[in-house]
């Protein structure tokens, strides 16, 4: 797929999210912009507190943004929007949460958990259709339809995460925000969930915003990766390119810290330390610039020059 043909499904333009805590204001997300193309898995990587989840929540309208705007399928979906558009966003943009142990209603049966979105948006004709769709959603994620009458506590972590995915899929979304969907899962089960996400991308042309802190997983699943540090995207590139040529010191730090399952390499690995004070932005303001096609880095003129020499 060439770059020109790709059509963005979601555009995040210069958004900021501030949280007020007493007199202090926390700049959780600070003027962030990116596009996500149709059928693409776009990953946001960063440590806890970097603002990656806040961006995901802003997209599904759980967090208000203070600056900028979010455009989904050519419509602005941030700020005050009409009721019909809001309900469209609620249907078309779904979220998968991190902890399957905490994100399912313990007192509801699986069929209610999965169909709740449909019921709330009255997106069905009769009970028969509702049951059918739950049946299919369960089959889609590799669970048995008879599980519909069970409670969440009867399932393992991996199964619960699939229930979470079924709940998102039943709304026939175009876009899914997957917030660390596998970090709470066991190694052997992670593969199942990753395969499932990839399958729906292939079969239904779904697009994902995949939020994670573990780069090894991200490399496998993403088309493009954005690295976020303290509420700012510091680097954005095609997944392979980012791994081959990381430019920003923070990206290098993250890559060097990622565990390598190879005892020869792992024991000789050198972890670089990122020191945010190394940037001197007092004289020159940094910009987020395209240093090679599709590869963006955050830095001032001198830094960008240095980065382009590294290419």
């Amino acid at each position: 797929m060439s770059r020109i043909e790709r059509e963005p499904i979601l555009k995040v333009e210069d958004i900021s999210v501030y949280f007020k805590n007493g007199k202090k204001t926390v700049h959780a997300v600070n003027h962030v912009s990116f596009d996500i193309f149709k059928g693409e898995t776009f990953s946001l990587v960063g440590e806890s507190g970097s603002g990656k989840t806040t961006i995901g929540r802003a997209i599904v309208r759980l967090n208000q943004i203070q600056t900028g705007r979010i455009i989904f399928q050519n419509e602005v979906i941030s700020g005050k929007i009409s009721r019909t558009l809001h309900s469209k966003v609620v249907r078309k943009v779904q979220m998968i949460f991190q902890d399957p142990m905490a994100s399912l209603n313990e007192r509801a049966k699986v069929n209610y958990i999965i169909s709740e979105g449909l019921i709330n948006s009255r997106e069905y004709k009769n009970q028969q259709e509702l049951d059918d769709r739950v049946h299919h959603a369960l089959l889609d994620v590799g669970l048995l339809p008879e599980f519909a009458s069970r409670f969440p506590h009867e399932f393992s972590g991996g199964q619960r995460q699939r229930i979470g995915i079924a709940r998102a899929l039943i709304m026939k979304p175009d876009f899914i925000v997957a917030d660390e969907p596998i970090s709470a899962l066991d190694v052997s089960i992670r593969a199942q969930v990753l395969n499932l996400l990839n399958k729906f991308k292939r079969e239904r042309g779904l697009s994902y915003l995949f939020i994670a802190h573990d780069l090894s997983v991200v490399r496998f699943i993403s088309d493009r990766i954005a690295v976020i540090y303290a509420g700012k995207i510091v680097e954005l590139a095609d997944a392979e390119r980012l791994f081959q040529k990381p430019l920003h010191p923070y990206t290098k730090n993250l890559l060097s810290a990622a565990p390598v399952p190879d005892p020869r390499l792992a024991k000789s690995k050198v972890v670089t330390i990122y020191d945010p004070t190394q940037h001197d932005y007092s004289k020159e303001k940094p910009t987020f610039s395209e240093i090679e096609p599709g590869h963006f880095v955050y830095g001032n003129v001198a830094e960008l020059e240095k980065y382009s020499k590294e290419l």
């Binding site: 190694v187 052997s188 199942q192 990753l194 990839n198 490399r219 496998f220 997944a239 392979e240």
Partner: peptide, 20 residues
């Protein structure tokens, strides 16, 4: 074998990851 094969680091991009 299964544990090692299911690691995303060893997976082939776009392909299926081995799942136990």
């Amino acid at each position: 074998w299964a544990l090692l094969s299911s690691l995303p680091q060893f997976g082939e991009k776009g392909g299926e990851l081995f799942a136990i």
